[in-house]
Amino acid sequence: MTKQVLVIEDEPNIVEAISFILSRDGWKVSTHANGETAVQAVYDASPDVLILDVMLPGRSGYDILKDLRANDATRTLPVLMLTARGQRTDRELAQRLGVSKFMTKPFSNAEVLETLNDLVSG
C-alpha cells in the first residue's frame, strides 16, 4: 500500500526537491506552504507521516506540532521536523513538544528517505 506523506514547507525549491525524492521512492506526496492553515491541512490529508518546517509564514512549526499533539487523531502521527536553525535549543524544544525525528537543513536525501521509512514501519 502506498504510504502518504504531507510536506509543510514554504521554500518552493525545497518542496520541489523533497517531493521529487519521495515520489521517486513511491510515496504519495502532498504539500502545504502556509503555517496558519497547516493543522487543518493535516486533518484533511490525514497522512501516514508528516514533514514539518519550523519557519513558516503565519505560524511556526512548533505551534503546529503542539496543536497536533493535543489532538487525539494526530497524537501519534509520526512527524519529521526539518529546520535551518539547527541549534541545540531548537532541538530540545522540538523534542519536548513530541517530535518523532528532528533533522537540520541541508539534509541528505537518503537519510530523509530512510528516516521516513523507519517512522512509518516502526
Partner: peptide
C-alpha cells in the same frame, strides 16, 4: 542553510 538545502 535554506539555499544550501535546495542545492544539496
Amino acid at each position: 542553510r535554506t539555499p544550501m538545502t535546495s542545492i544539496r
